[in-house]
Design a protein around this nucleic acid. Structure first.
Length: 363
DNA sequence: CACCCGTGGCC
DNA sequence: TGGCCAAGGGT
């Protein structure tokens, strides 16, 4: 008798589906191009993978284009100024990625003669490259049989096998399944196919199971409801923090900026002077905490939600008559703010005080 | 292992 | 409208 069990699950239907329905992405070599001998550029694969960490494809596209135009090779990025890289990354979030991106480029240029390591182990030894990115670059750029597991793959696997154990604890079990499923032939396309499937068919809500190449062998579809997977442990609620930000502008149109500490929240990025962001809601949110005395005017409150807390920032503005030499900051023309490494929360704060500070002032 | 670390879009 | 989520890594 012939029984289709999970043990017979094959990558073939997924690869066939990928040949027909793969997404066209700027950093991707499509199956058709690969058949004509086009090889992926490890630098582009790595750059895109780092940008895509916890970030949507749509958000990455313009940044990828900008980086590639400005720094076409990894050696160009290695030779770039840190501040330029941080300014180019501004808005994309998780700024430690940018710091590690730069360190990684320098390591490849200096320690590897500008050539990326072509093994999972070699890649993982580089800054900013963890389990996922090492496997992804090894598989996609170097055709290594590496098991690639990201959030998409976790969702697909958890449904295929109806895994009831919650994430993140169930990760090793899922990784084992991916390892068994990853083919020796076209491992890179397999990885990208799993992620495309998760992004377009096996979606978190209302998956399009009727279009899925695995519809005949999906345990969740057979037993209950795919939308119930993956199971995740409950997350704790977000605390609220509060502070004040001060926008000082001279008659010449210069604004007082500072540089944040190299590590931690928004590390190495640029900011306007602010108070500490405290958990106390009765903290220093008024002019009494301003960097210097001036005719401070209230400009409302900016609310910004970070990964692990919500920030309520009181905004204050003052026209400065006599420019003081700030010992831990500098005066920057408001017309040059676009070139600064300003995270989104700071653009919001400045826009609240100077509505025309940014061309795309949707904050 | 639990926590820290951004942002924007979606329903 | 707000909680959820996106090609995670470092510590």
């Amino acid at each position: 008798m012939t029984i289709t069990t999970l043990d017979s699950l094959s990558a073939k239907p997924l690869l066939d589906w990928y040949d027909r329905h793969h997404r066209d992405l700027p950093w991707r070599v499509s199956p058709g191009m690969a058949a004509r001998g086009v090889k992926p550029d490890p630098y582009r694969v790595w750059l895109s993978e780092v940008m895509l960490q916890q970030t949507t494809v749509q958000a990455v596209k313009p940044y990828f284009a900008k980086f590639l135009e400005r720094w076409p090779e990894v050696t160009d990025l290695a030779a770039a100024e840190n501040d330029e890289v941080m300014a180019a990354w501004a808005g994309l979030g998780y700024y430690a990625r940018a710091r590690n991106l730069k360190k990684c480029a320098e390591a490849v240029a200096k320690d590897h003669r500008g050539v990326f390591p072509d093994t999972e182990t070699g890649l993982k030894s580089l800054p900013g490259i963890g389990d996922y990115t090492a496997a992804a670059v090894a598989a996609i750029a170097f055709n290594r049989q590496a098991a690639v597991m990201d959030g998409n793959v976790e969702r697909v696997i958890s449904r295929l096998y109806a895994i009831e154990a919650p994430l993140p604890g169930a990760k090793p079990v899922m990784k084992d399944k991916v390892t068994l499923l990853t083919p020796a032939n076209r491992p890179g396309d397999f990885a990208q196919a799993m992620m495309d499937l998760g992004a377009t068919i096996c979606t978190p809500k209302r998956p399009a199971c009727s279009l899925c190449p695995f519809r005949g062998s999906c345990q969740a579809l057979k037993l209950c409801d795919p939308e119930l997977f993956p199971v995740k442990t409950a997350k704790k609620e977000k605390p609220v923090r509060q502070g004040a930000a001060f926008i000082a502008v001279t008659g010449d149109g210069e604004i007082l900026l500072r540089r944040r500490a190299e590590s931690g929240l928004l590390g190495g990025m640029t900011e306007v002077p602010t108070t500490a962001w405290t958990a106390r809601l009765d903290g220093e949110t008024s002019v009494t905490a301003a960097p210097f005395a001036a005719a401070w005017q209230a400009c409302g409150t900016v609310i910004h939600v970070f990964t692990h807390f919500e920030l309520r920032l009181s905004i204050w503005r003052a026209a400065i008559v006599q420019k003081l030499e700030a010992d831990d900051g500098w005066w920057e023309p408001v017309t040059n703010l676009e070139a600064q490494a300003l995270p989104t929360v700071m653009k919001k704060a400045i826009a609240a005080a100077i509505p025309l500070a940014f061309k795309t002032s949707r904050a």
